[in-house]
Design a binder for these strands. Structure first.
Length: 468
RNA sequence: GGUGGCGUAGCCAAGUGGUUAGGCAAGGGCCUGCAAAGCCCCGAACCCCGGUUCGAAUCCGGGCGCCACCUCCA
């Protein structure tokens, strides 16, 4: 059995996972900015974090999982200009920032639950941790890592020699390309705001007093302040989308290592690749809002999306298409049918026969969470002719602790049988024709109904009809 | 301009030197009066050109194509 190995962005290599404290894992996941619905790509990040958490639990670790809710301070524009997303959303919707946050936080949590993500142990909100954020900014100020501009307190990246190490950035080259807009008062384009002072005469919905004036915290600060509050100044795992590596997480590392005097601040950094939609990135700003409810409206079960997620490795871009989603949906349902078949099987499983499957399953997960291989093992169980029903039952339920596909309870919904006197009568007439072997007549009735989009299926329990 | 990644059979997607990944679709079969659903069976693929090697999808070099991040984004 190989040890659990994970790809650590910090070291750019696969490493054997060993938590700081044996048997206990602290992990932090970058959560949503709750100003808009979360799309399927966002959900992929949550599914990835959940896969990781479930793997830790499967390995017997006690896990403390923290996910933040960003409800302030995330600017709409480049590094440090533009409006705050929450303020902007409140303005356009006519609601308060708090109402906007509450709405999208709930939607996000519901989506997570529907795709089988375990709830985090802590779900801290940025607005409820302003004090902690100010304290961290003060530590940085006292350490000489900051400077003031007319609009706030900034982190001086030049004071942190290792700034570019985390993401392997070539700051010189980036500057020469001129893609990062210069902000006049910033000493270096990479410098970022720790605290933004509200401009004179502007009244924000969300603002607080601070040593630097009334205003609001910079986006990056909350993750450092809150993760440390709940997990300690050193912790094991930090996850997020790959887009966060070069800016958000680079800045988190800078402010945390400088402010707390620790290195490395986080032992393992794990990042998931993006979900791509028809070869175009799914992002809110490009208008491709594609959400879980959209899949549900198309008739997919939320867990079919989880199954879809599990079919690709988390560090690989995954291509979404209707066809691929339908393939996942069909595959998931078929696998469930196999599970349901053995779910109530009596008797005890034969441990010796189970072992090879368990080993392959764990080996797959231990190899940087290779979920596609783990799912393949589940299929091998389903197709295997040597295993007893009780053995299959035991394996399915064990694997589901990680897969999270609800094998223990899932039911395949029966086609809902509508009732319509006219159609029911025609179906009944067809049954009578069939009983009398008058198949010409029975087929005529079926064709008649088919012409209006109604399909008759003959089942062992009798005929059913449905609208196509 | 910098950085990271990808190119595997109709589709999605594992696989890092030699052994069947897996799923979906298609095809064949069972079942059915016929269908549908369900179940069973079934695919010798690896962008191109060189090289290393007994042997390469897998390593090295070159080329072509595609994507992502560096700017709000998971």
């Amino acid at each position: 059995m190989k040890a659990l190995t994970l790809y650590n962005t910090r070291t750019r290599s696969k490493e054997v996972f060993e938590p700081a404290t044996p048997g206990v894992v602290g992990m932090y996941t970058c959560g949503p900015t709750v100003y808009a619905p979360q799309h399927l790509g966002n959900l992929r990040s949550q599914l990835f974090a959940d896969l990781l958490k479930r793997t830790f639990l499967y390995e017997g670790y006690k896990v403390t999982h923290v996910i933040n809710i960003t409800d302030v301070g995330h600017l709409t524009d480049d590094a440090d200009a533009g409006d705050d997303k929450m303020e902007a959303a409140a303005k356009t919707s006519g609601q308060t920032a708090q109402e906007v946050a509450a709405l999208y936080t709930k939607q996000w949590a519901d989506d997570r639950e529907r795709v089988g993500c375990l709830p985090p142990e802590f779900l801290p909100r940025a607005t409820e941790h302003i004090t902690e954020q100010i304290e961290l900014a003060q530590k940085l100020e006292q350490g000489g890592y900051t400077y003031l501009t007319s609009d706030g307190l900034y982190f001086d990246t030049a004071k942190f020699p290792g700034y570019s190490d985390f993401a392997g950035l070539d700051l010189e080259a980036q500057q020469s390309a001129g893609r990062v807009a210069e902000v006049d008062e910033k000493r270096n384009p990479a410098d970022f705001a720790l605290w933004k002072v509200a401009p004179e005469g502007v009244k924000r919905q969300q603002e607080w007093d601070s040593p630097w004036g009334r205003g609001f915290p910079g986006w990056h600060l909350e993750c450092s302040a809150m993760s440390v509050k709940y997990l300690g100044e050193n912790f094991d795992v930090h996850t997020g989308g790959i887009d966060h590596v070069s800016v958000h997480h680079t800045n988190e590392v800078a402010q945390s290592e400088c402010g707390l005097g620790v290195h490395p601040w986080v032992r393992y950094w794990l990042h998931n690749e993006f979900l791509s939609l028809d070869k175009e990135k799914m992002s809110k700003s490009k208008g491709h809002v594609f959400v879980l409810d959209g899949l549900v409206e198309m008739g997919f079960a939320p867990l079919s999306y989880r199954y879809f997620f599990l079919q690709a490795h988390y560090r690989q871009q995954q291509r979404y298409s209707q066809e691929a989603m339908e393939a996942a949906d069909t595959g998931y349902k078929r696998l469930c049918r196999q599970v349901i078949e053995v779910r109530d099987a009596p008797g005890e499983p034969d441990a010796e026969k189970l072992a090879p499957f368990q080993a392959r399953f764990r080996d797959a997960l231990h190899d940087d969470l290779n979920a596609p291989r783990a799912v393949a093992v589940a299929w091998d169980v389903a197709k295997n002719k040597e295993l007893s029903a009780a053995g299959k039952r035991a394996l399915f339920l064990e694997f589901d602790a990680v897969l999270g596909l609800d094998f223990a309870n899932v039911e395949l919904p029966e086609e809902t049988q509508e009732s319509d006197p006219r159609i029911d009568a025609l179906v009944q007439a067809r049954q009578e024709a069939r009983a009398g072997k008058d198949f010409t007549e029975s087929d005529r009735i079926r064709d008649e109904l088919l012409a209006e989009g109604i399909v008759i299926d003959d089942t062992p329990e009798g005929p059913r009809w449905r609208r196509e």
